[in-house]
Computed example of a mutant assay.
Amino acid sequence: MNDFDALQAVIRRLAAERQAEQRACEAFLNALYHALRTASGPGLPLNNVTFDFTPDPAERLRPPPPGGWHAAWLRLGLCEVLVRVRRDEGAFVGEYGEGGTFHLTGVTEDDLILLARRLLRDVAAAYGGGGLVGRSGMPLN
């Protein structure tokens, strides 16, 4: 077996794992989108929120290898924010905007709404000149 055939074999062998990760990450991004729509509270949906899956601009291989990033552009009214997510030992690890990060081991509705509210605050701070703020309350930039 030559190197090319070995590459094709490993890609085929890991196809199910990659596809399961992709479905999980896309479901997470979809759930985050719905959390953003309800982040203002019950009965107060944000109607100007949409999203589009996109190939991760930083990913250098297609299809992404196991553990690779999956991405979507979230439109929040007048701006858009790129959200990247991947699976890491059962958790969802991600990045958004200008340095925002998250690590969720649980993906309950409350977890997602808390993340959505943090994302909205961080993006507002980035546009307002405050930059992103970490868990300690200190600016990240």
Score class of each variant (00 low, 15 high):
1 M>W: 06
1 M>V: 13
3 D>M: 08
4 F>H: 12
5 D>T: 09
6 A>F: 08
7 L>T: 07
9 A>G: 03
9 A>N: 09
10 V>P: 06
11 I>D: 11
12 R>H: 10
12 R>I: 02
13 R>S: 07
17 E>V: 15
18 R>F: 05
20 A>D: 12
21 E>N: 04
21 E>V: 03
22 Q>F: 03
24 A>W: 00
25 C>A: 15
25 C>L: 07
27 A>F: 01
28 F>W: 10
28 F>S: 00
29 L>P: 04
31 A>M: 00
36 L>N: 04
38 T>G: 04
39 A>M: 02
42 P>T: 09
44 L>A: 14
44 L>S: 12
44 L>Y: 10
45 P>D: 00
45 P>A: 03
46 L>I: 11
46 L>A: 14
47 N>H: 13
48 N>T: 12
48 N>C: 04
52 D>Y: 09
53 F>A: 12
53 F>T: 09
54 T>E: 12
54 T>F: 04
57 P>S: 05
58 A>F: 14
60 R>D: 13
60 R>W: 02
60 R>F: 02
61 L>Y: 10
62 R>Q: 14
62 R>P: 00
63 P>K: 09
64 P>L: 02
70 H>E: 09
71 A>S: 15
72 A>Y: 00
72 A>D: 05
73 W>Q: 12
73 W>R: 14
75 R>Y: 05
77 G>T: 01
79 C>L: 13
81 V>F: 03
83 V>Q: 02
85 V>G: 03
86 R>N: 09
86 R>T: 03
87 R>H: 07
87 R>V: 11
90 G>K: 02
90 G>P: 04
93 V>R: 05
94 G>V: 03
94 G>R: 03
97 G>W: 05
98 E>D: 15
98 E>W: 07
98 E>N: 14
100 G>P: 06
102 F>W: 03
103 H>R: 13
104 L>T: 07
104 L>V: 06
105 T>W: 10
107 V>A: 12
107 V>H: 05
111 D>M: 01
112 L>K: 01
112 L>H: 00
114 L>M: 13
115 L>P: 08
116 A>S: 06
116 A>T: 01
118 R>F: 06
118 R>N: 15
119 L>P: 03
125 A>G: 10
125 A>N: 15
126 A>I: 07
127 Y>Q: 11
127 Y>A: 07
130 G>R: 11
130 G>Y: 10
131 G>Y: 07
132 L>K: 05
134 G>L: 10
137 G>L: 08
139 P>M: 12
139 P>L: 09
139 P>W: 07
140 L>F: 04
